[in-house]
Amino acid sequence: MDKNQKTVELPNTNELTEELCRREGVEEIVIEAHTKFRIEVVGKAPREFEGPARLLINAD
């Protein structure tokens, strides 16, 4: 790395998630541990998951 370049420290995933949750237009759905859930989108194959999970809907 060039000595004149600055390194940028990136936030971890949890910090990014917390910041997004505070934003207007973002809805959070919390899925508890061991809870199975399914996401279906028209025109796509359904996907199945198991919590814990945090789903963020960014409608902005």
Rank of each mutant, 00 (worst) to 15 (best):
L10T: 10
V41D: 01
K3N: 10
T13C: 02
E48M: 14
K3I: 11
G43E: 06
V30R: 04
R22C: 09
C21Y: 03
R54M: 02
K44Y: 09
E50L: 12
T35F: 11
E40T: 08
R54N: 05
A33L: 15
G25T: 06
R22G: 08
V30A: 05
D60K: 14
E48W: 10
N58I: 10
P52L: 07
A33Y: 15
T7I: 15
M1E: 07
Q5N: 09
C21K: 13
D2W: 09
K6H: 10
H34M: 15
P46D: 00
G51M: 11
P46R: 04
R38I: 07
E15Y: 05
E27G: 02
E28I: 07
K44P: 00
K36W: 01
P11K: 13
E15G: 02
E50R: 14
P52V: 03
T35Y: 11
D60R: 14
T7C: 13
E40F: 05
I39R: 07
H34P: 12
N14T: 06
N14V: 06
E15C: 03
R38F: 00
H34R: 15
C21D: 05
N12Y: 11
Q5I: 06
N12K: 14
E9L: 15
L56W: 05
L10F: 13
R54A: 01
E27F: 07
L55R: 01
V26P: 02
G43V: 10
R47P: 00
F49D: 04
K3S: 11
N58T: 06
N4F: 13
F37D: 01
E48Y: 11
P11I: 11
Q5V: 10
D2K: 14
A53E: 08
E19C: 09
M1C: 08
R54S: 00
L10P: 04
E28G: 06
V42G: 08
I57E: 00
P11W: 12
T7A: 13
N4Y: 12
C21M: 14
E27C: 09
A33V: 15
E9D: 15
R47F: 00
G51H: 08
E9S: 15
N4I: 10
I39E: 04
V42L: 14
E15L: 10
M1G: 08
R23I: 01
E48C: 12
G51L: 07
L20H: 01
I57A: 04
K44A: 09
E27I: 09
G25D: 05
L16I: 01
E15A: 12
L16P: 04
E9G: 14
H34S: 15
E50N: 08
